[in-house]
Design a protein around this nucleic acid. Structure first.
Lengths: 210, 210
DNA sequence: GAGGAAATCGCCCATATGGGGTAAAAGGAA
DNA sequence: TTCCTTTTACCCCATATGGGCGATTTCCTC
């Protein structure tokens, strides 16, 4: 019965004390079982791919192969295992790199034990546990609030262009003269500092204009 | 004293019953105050920019201006206000569009009252409250492990195209004949099922190919 | 060793594109 | 009021583009 089975946890953490503390928290809680602890990724890479583990707590700042590189190597070999990064840093780069590498969650090292256990459960359930400020950072990376340099009409035109339409199709769609469409496009290019469809579409998407 | 002040909440939700239920939950809880309710974005747009509101609960599926468009219009005028989307859908597009529009959180409509209130507080504290599976979707959007249908060369060509280069420039850059570049582009179009620069660039970016 | 992508190069041709202009009406901001 | 932006519309013209063909070589897989 998977639902009543313990969650199998592994820890990769170079600091002896923290490692022991984490292991004690996990083993001291019903439903959790700390199966493996590693001092570094090199050790983890030797053992983890061959064993059954649900959640790996992975320190980010590790000597040698760091936690992010570790996840990048391990995740493809353990697609059903969830990786939760533990870190003292919370700069955007580290957070994103971890997530891109395949981590499911991202917690600060000072996360209280109860939170940590909840996070492990949440990761197992398919969630993406992360400290509130980290979640916000990720969300903010989507925001890009700066307002569009393009007018509504121009945005509309560019959107259609990005769908592969040409002057005539856009004109027909928007009930405009092809000449007008062309004027809009010229203005779009000026505003975006580009001079081709490809570059315009790219810039528009990157800047979330369309 | 901001810390002891009630959290001022507004609701935009077309379903009468849900709207009343949400308002009751909020007004029935110490520390929360439902200041406004709206049936649609049009109404909300008239009133909200002029009032003091901490958190807006915004239905996604609204008649007329939908919740995403609503947030896009409102957020720039209310940068200190947090928007939490409420939805029955959880498809990737909707989630991402919401977040890009400026939403801070994203909850399913069946979120229990206590969770909802926690989410409002969390948003106010600078977090990004979202249902576990939605958080996971966002995280997964970073993963994107699926391999490209384009060959390395084609990817290279498309990347240059997206920067605004034409056949000749690309050819020069890659030490190829313009004919070859054209052939690559034709193949790219075939593989991506498009027939123009704009659409190719768009698809490539959306599928994270370049 | 046959089949199939990938990468390279070529030609023809109708049409789309981008850059250079001009201009007028409507609406908001200074 | 004046100025600017937006939206609409038109002109000319050189060049880029996309679709239709075909071809060789290499390399990988079956």
């Amino acid at each position: 019965m998977l639902t009543t089975e313990n969650i199998h946890v592994a820890i990769v953490e170079d600091d002896h004390e923290i490692r022991q503390t984490l292991a004690l928290i996990i083993d001291g809680t019903p439903g959790f079982w700390c199966k493996h602890t590693f001092e570094d990724c090199e050790e983890a890479l030797k053992t983890l791919p061959g064993v059954y583990i649900n959640v790996v707590l992975m320190d980010v700042e590790l000597p040698g192969i760091n936690g992010i590189q570790g996840v990048r190597k391990l995740k493809p070999q353990m697609p059903d295992t969830d990786f939760i990064m533990l870190t003292i840093k919370q700069d955007d780069e580290t957070v994103f790199a971890s997530i891109c590498a395949g981590a499911s969650g991202y917690l600060m090292k000072d996360t209280p034990p109860t939170e940590l256990l909840k996070a492990i459960e949440e990761a197992r359930k398919g969630g993406a546990p992360m400290s509130a400020n980290i979640a916000r950072r990720i969300v903010q990376s989507f925001h890009q609030i700066k307002k569009s340099p393009l007018s509504d009409r121009e945005t509309e035109v560019l959107k259609l262009l990005s769908q592969g339409m040409n002057y005539r199709s856009v004109a027909k769609q928007l009930f405009l003269s092809p000449h007008t469409v062309k004027t809009h496009i010229k203005n779009i290019y000026q505003k975006l500092h580009v001079n081709s469809r490809g570059a315009a579409v790219r810039k528009a998407i990157e800047d979330k204009l369309i």
